[in-house]
Design a protein around this nucleic acid. Structure first.
Lengths: 139, 139
DNA sequence: CCGTATCCCTTACGATACTG
DNA sequence: CAGTATCGTAAGGGATACGG
């Protein structure tokens, strides 16, 4: 697993890089996860909004649009008043939920590792001389 | 299979969100992966640069700095002329390589899913036919 | 060879206000 | 309730040139 076998394709379009693009949009993974895990694959706009603390209305809708365009979810409109819209995971979307859960689970099981990470945002201001920690040769 | 078990903590600082922050910097995961898989945990700057097609010098160094500050890698300077700098994975960094490989492996094994994704870049245009996959009934 | 400093552009994201 | 339209900011990231 840690071995790359024979795939050292590091071109722009390799699988690894393409997967990461999924995570490049802040809310995509959370929407996928929440849809599946908390709402069993389908939920209305407002429900999703409330399930995702911190998301803005704009980003919610925008991300949902992109996800629909990508084929991760479908949009179902109830022609009522007021309108009711439900978003549902597609089978394809479901596959990606697996990935997301993999990552999230790793995060939960390795919370200690996450805690050990120094926040580079606060450590912006380090030493003025910039003395590196060590200058040792290889052991 | 509720992966969520009991954790519906969707606050800003929950584990899932913190993991994702790791992936928020484009090159971090690739550097981690390449360091471990292709260079056995340690490599010099130039080697890393050549191992990562597409990365700019600026982003290489900048990302390495952030990773060092985070505690993912260490920097070892050979006081020679010309200078030789080696970056080495820390045990903490090693743990995150596990995560990265998990994701990359998923990508390789699910390349077909990645292929099925519609490129949302083309969905720039709006309106027009805009025929949503509508499921209920016709509008 | 290693690293820094600019310059500049693109984009993600958020706040807010407005329509149906 | 659902969605759109603007506006504004910050950050990511590349190109390039310079210095040790």
């Amino acid at each position: 697993m840690t071995t790359d076998s024979r795939e050292d394709e590091w071109r722009e379009d390799c699988a690894p890089r393409r997967v990461m693009e999924l995570f490049s949009t802040k809310w995509t993974s959370m929407i996928l996860h929440v849809l599946q895990v908390r709402h069993d694959g389908a939920a209305r706009t407002g429900v999703l909004h409330r399930s995702l603390p911190g998301i803005s209305k704009k980003m919610l809708v925008q991300t949902l649009r992109e996800m629909e365009a990508s084929g991760l979810i479908t949009r179902h409109v109830e022609s009522t008043v007021p309108p009711a819209v439900e978003y549902r995971l597609t089978p394809l979307g479901g596959r990606f939920v697996g990935l997301v859960d993999l990552v999230y689970d790793w995060g939960r099981m390795n919370a200690d590792a996450l805690d050990l990470l120094q926040d580079r945002a606060t450590s912006r201001r380090r030493t003025a001389d910039g003395a590196p920690p060590l200058s040792e040769s290889r052991t």
